[in-house]
């Protein structure tokens, strides 16, 4: 990897993605051992700087760091001066003075991780910024698909949901395209950004067409609190039209897998039986998330910005 930070899929080329996936595949083997911990990042400090609530992603980064023997510190809005109106960059500078070896950032505003990377010596890893990017989610999704299908190149991947407001969709579209997959997006017209096809995807408002021949179907989480009454008339209508169930899934390939970044709104974007059983691979995604984040921390934590300049 040439870059020091992981701010998005946007800055990565295919060989970067392949290196991260290959490293993560080796990390998966560690998860099968009795002792799952290796001394690689002993004495290193990783800071989880979460300005937006997250249990799953934060925990995944925390376990990943600990399995590499790093000390992991969690900074979140409720437990720090972030609630005392200290500016984001001041907080970042204060943290930097404590000399962390990597900082994992989540913020509800797009671009904040990049801003923080600008003032920090430590590598910054974006754990989700607004509707911009969530690179480790896209990478763990690639890893899961590669594990299930043996490849990514040439597959058809359909992403269903609020494409316009989803950082998961944004990162996944780029990641799967770069790895050679065909990417389709589907949802009510209000959820599809006007120029979405300029990203290189095909857009559909019919599930039957969107799923036809798909190898992978990815349902996005509907933000119930944000969307009721705004982008679609009712949850029930969304669920009937765009919810995935065994009956809608029959349009896809017989061996299609179902993915979801979690947490699932059961009965909304996924039917109850699909959420829990094959062909859904949701818990594999979670498991792969730890290995993938270990790979990212291994490749980035403790690397100095100066080293990047000299190559």
């Amino acid at each position: 990897m040439i870059a020091t930070d992981l701010l998005g899929i946007e800055g990565l080329d295919r060989s970067d993605l392949e290196l991260i996936l290959e490293t993560a595949e080796h990390m998966q083997e560690l998860g099968t051992r009795a002792v799952k911990k290796v001394p690689t990042l002993r004495g290193r400090t990783i800071v989880n700087l979460f300005f937006e609530a997250s249990t799953r992603t934060r925990t995944s980064f925390e376990i990943a760091g600990k399995r590499l023997s790093a000390d992991v510190i969690n900074f979140s809005t409720s437990s720090s001066s972030l609630s005392k109106h200290e500016s984001i960059l001041d907080t970042a500078r204060t943290l930097d003075a404590m000399q962390p070896d990597a900082v994992v950032v989540r913020h509800k505003v797009a671009g904040v991780p990049q801003q923080i990377a600008g003032v920090l010596d430590a590598p910054v890893i974006n754990a989700g910024d607004g509707a911009h990017e969530h690179p480790t989610q896209a990478l763990l999704d690639l890893l899961t698909v590669k594990q299930e299908k043996g490849r990514v190149d040439g597959l058809t991947v359909t992403i269903v949901g609020d494409i316009g407001h989803s950082r998961v969709a944004r990162s996944n579209i780029q990641a799967f395209l770069r790895m050679g997959a065909e990417v389709r997006v589907a949802g009510p017209p209000t959820m599809l950004p006007p120029a979405v096809e300029s990203l290189g995807v095909k857009a559909f408002t019919s599930m039957r067409e969107a799923l036809d021949g798909a190898d992978v179907v990815m349902a996005l989480r509907i933000q119930l609190e944000r969307l009721e009454g705004a982008l679609f008339p009712s949850i029930r209508e969304y669920s009937e039209t765009f919810g995935l169930s065994r009956s809608t899934l029959r349009y896809a390939k017989d061996d299609a897998i179902v993915m979801h970044p979690g947490p699932v709104n059961r009965g909304v974007e996924l039917s109850h039986d699909l959420a829990d059983h094959r062909p859904s691979v949701i818990l594999d995604q979670v498991r792969n998330g730890v290995a993938l984040r270990m790979a990212v921390l291994y490749l980035l934590a403790g690397r100095e910005r100066a080293a990047e300049v000299s190559g």
Binding site: M1, M27, P39, A307
Partner: peptide, 23 residues
């Protein structure tokens, strides 16, 4: 058995070495 994650020189190197398989 890959030994990379147990190396004592990861700190002094810029780019991290590629991992190899363990079986």
């Amino acid at each position: 058995l890959d030994t990379t994650l147990y190396r004592d020189d990861l700190i002094v190197r810029g780019e991290r070495p590629r991992l190899r398989r363990t079986e």
